[in-house]
Amino acid sequence: MINDETLNEYRISGILIRVIRDNDEKNDVKGNIVAWDSEVVMVRKRNRKVVKLSREYIYQPYKEERICLEP
């Protein structure tokens, strides 16, 4: 689970992030961190829609190489 300090760093700096939900890269969510609580993170996608995602997913800067999940 991602910690509050990292989420705050991503939000303040405005870094474009990638949320990895499964092995399929097509299912990744790209956007900016807007807010969070103990269970969910709100991400504003490039098309300005805001989605709620579980904190259990993997959050990483979009510039970094995508982490590959084990099947």
Rank of each mutant, 00 (worst) to 15 (best):
M1Q: 08
I2H: 03
I2L: 03
N3L: 05
D4Q: 06
D4M: 06
T6M: 02
T6E: 13
L7M: 00
L7E: 01
N8E: 12
N8I: 04
N8S: 11
E9A: 09
R11V: 04
R11F: 00
S13F: 14
S13I: 11
S13Y: 12
G14D: 13
G14H: 03
G14V: 10
G14F: 12
G14I: 13
I15C: 08
L16I: 14
L16D: 14
I17L: 03
R18D: 15
V19Q: 01
V19M: 00
N23G: 14
N23H: 13
N23F: 14
D24Y: 06
E25N: 03
N27E: 10
N27K: 12
V29G: 06
G31E: 01
G31F: 01
G31Y: 03
I33P: 01
V34P: 03
D37Y: 09
S38H: 00
E39N: 00
E39I: 03
V40D: 04
V40W: 05
V41D: 09
V41I: 06
V41M: 08
V41Q: 07
V41H: 01
M42A: 11
V43W: 04
R44Q: 01
R44F: 09
K45I: 06
R46I: 12
R46W: 09
R46D: 14
N47Q: 08
N47H: 06
N47K: 11
N47I: 04
R48V: 08
K49C: 07
K49F: 11
K49L: 00
V50W: 03
V50E: 15
K52D: 03
K52V: 02
L53D: 10
L53W: 04
L53Y: 10
S54E: 09
R55I: 08
R55P: 03
E56Y: 04
E56V: 05
E56R: 11
Y57H: 08
I58N: 09
Y59T: 07
Y59W: 08
Y59E: 07
Q60H: 07
Q60P: 02
Y62W: 07
Y62Q: 13
Y62N: 15
K63S: 09
K63M: 12
K63G: 09
K63T: 13
E64H: 14
E64Q: 02
E65G: 02
E65N: 05
R66K: 14
R66N: 09
I67E: 13
L69S: 10
E70C: 15
E70A: 15
P71W: 15
